[in-house]
């Protein structure tokens, strides 16, 4: 049961997060904050012609939020903004909606399936979606987001 939540993939991305770096001249950026656990994240994105060319984050958080941020950056790079928003919607549904359990069968996104176990721990949904909410706010031009 626990192995379902803290899978090797999540633990690996927590230990060695991908794209945890500053982007000097982002076209979009936002701060995210989870006041309950003190998680802080800053997300950067470079969007050109409607395509997310680069996306990264810096910040501190729990294993679930760090791994989620890391896997998000891998999943979304090279996608259009519309695709990114659609993936966020599906990701959120996978964590909260029983009907959406088979969230990401397709290649390139299948790693996101690792977070399906969060559904068993509703208190942790905010951890798993903090980076996503923050990117969403960045793309929408809101500089700040709190998961309260």
């Amino acid at each position: 049961m626990m192995s379902e939540l803290y899978q090797d993939l999540i633990l690996d991305h927590n230990r060695a997060p991908r794209n945890r770096r500053v982007i000097e001249h982002p076209s979009h950026e936002a701060d995210g904050h989870n006041p309950l656990c003190g998680d802080q994240i800053h997300v950067y994105a470079v969007v050109r012609d409607g395509v997310v060319e680069d996306v990264s984050f810096v910040g501190q958080g729990c294993a679930i939020s760090t791994a989620s941020a890391s896997l998000m950056t891998e999943a979304l790079r090279g996608r259009t903004v519309e695709e990114a928003e659609a993936i966020f919607k599906r990701f959120h549904a996978m964590l909260t909606d029983d009907a959406a359990i088979d969230g990401f069968p397709e290649d390139g996104l299948d790693k996101l399936q690792a977070f399906a176990g969060v559904r068993e721990y509703p208190m942790r949904v905010k951890c798993a979606t903090l980076a996503w909410h923050t990117l969403h706010a960045a793309l929408a031009g809101d500089g700040r987001v709190s998961t309260e």
């Binding site: 939540l5 803290y6 729990c62 294993a63 679930i64 942790r124």
Partner: peptide, 10 residues
């Protein structure tokens, strides 16, 4: 380095 929320969940 384990975040207390991860401790709590486990």
């Amino acid at each position: 380095d384990v975040h207390p929320h991860d401790i709590g969940t486990i």
